[in-house]
Simulated assay, not measured.
Amino acid sequence: MNFKTNRKKPVFGRKKVSKKNIPSNTMFSKDERLSIMKKELKKDFVSFDDAKVRHKELLEKINLQIRERGCVGINWVPLCKTACEKGEISSFLLEELGLDPFLKWNSLYFAKDEKTAFIFDTVLYEPRLEGLYNDQILVLIKNARDGWEKAKEQYLMTGNLRELKTYRDVLKIQFANISADVDKIIYANKQNHIQHFFSIK
């Protein structure tokens, strides 16, 4: 299944950077700029293990609330399963973009039974729903990684940390928008009240 949007892809480095817009760290050496960048990226860092445990605890909490309403619960299906495995993809998302692969942007949730599906007006889980978008999202992540590497190279030349952080924010928004587009396809004609349990987007 293909999903496309008319949103413009993030573009980096097309405009010339004027000296007025270059922060003071342009006076630093390339190694110093690299150190500044790593320190800045670490501010949003969450380890893979912590992210996984946090999501597991959240899902257990939500299923407890659902069972208290007389239902069975929900199943979690990642859009990109590969991103939720410990490796270079998850490391890139967590360490470089500060993007947790266990959060809503990479997650679909389905009712475990018909009663849950009816009460929460959502989709009943079926095995066919596993891995529907894995390859497509994986391609997008790899494209984002390529763009991010170019953005970092540009930063090392200009020292414009603000522009680098802006580019990272654009990538995060892009993935959130893709997730929203997938939701419209998967939960078409459904209110999907399960989404209200997830306050973290």
Rank of each mutant, 00 (worst) to 15 (best):
N21D: 15
I137S: 10
L64E: 11
Y155A: 12
S29C: 03
R7F: 04
Q136T: 09
N134I: 06
E163G: 03
G70N: 02
I185W: 00
E114Y: 08
V182M: 02
S179L: 05
T158I: 05
F110H: 10
S18F: 10
E88A: 12
L93M: 11
L103W: 12
K152P: 06
E32R: 05
I74F: 00
K4Y: 09
V77A: 04
I119C: 04
Q174P: 02
K86T: 03
R14H: 14
E40V: 10
Y125T: 10
L99N: 14
R14E: 12
E163R: 01
K16L: 15
Q174Y: 09
L171H: 05
Y155E: 04
S107E: 05
S107K: 01
T26S: 03
C80I: 00
P10H: 11
N63P: 04
Y167V: 06
Q195Y: 01
R145V: 06
K86C: 02
E88R: 07
C71T: 05
A111F: 04
G147W: 01
L103T: 14
D31G: 11
K61E: 15
L164M: 13
N177V: 03
A144F: 05
K104A: 03
L124C: 10
A117F: 03
L164A: 09
E88H: 12
E60T: 13
L64W: 04
E60K: 15
L99A: 05
E130I: 15
V11G: 02
D169L: 15
D100C: 14
A151H: 02
G73W: 02
L93C: 07
G13P: 07
F197V: 00
K42H: 15
N192R: 02
Y125H: 10
E40T: 15
L99S: 07
K61Q: 14
F198S: 00
S179A: 15
V72D: 03
P78T: 03
V46P: 01
F3G: 09
L34Q: 14
E153A: 15
N160P: 10
W148A: 14
R14M: 06
N134Y: 05
K38C: 09
S91N: 10
D135T: 13
K20A: 15
Q154V: 12
N177Y: 02
S91Y: 13
K172A: 05
T26Y: 02
A176E: 13
V77W: 01
K4S: 12
F102G: 02
I200K: 07
L140N: 08
H193C: 01
E95N: 12
R33C: 00
I36P: 01
R54N: 14
W105M: 07
D121F: 05
D121I: 12
E40A: 07
Q154N: 13
D44W: 04
Q191I: 08
N2V: 10
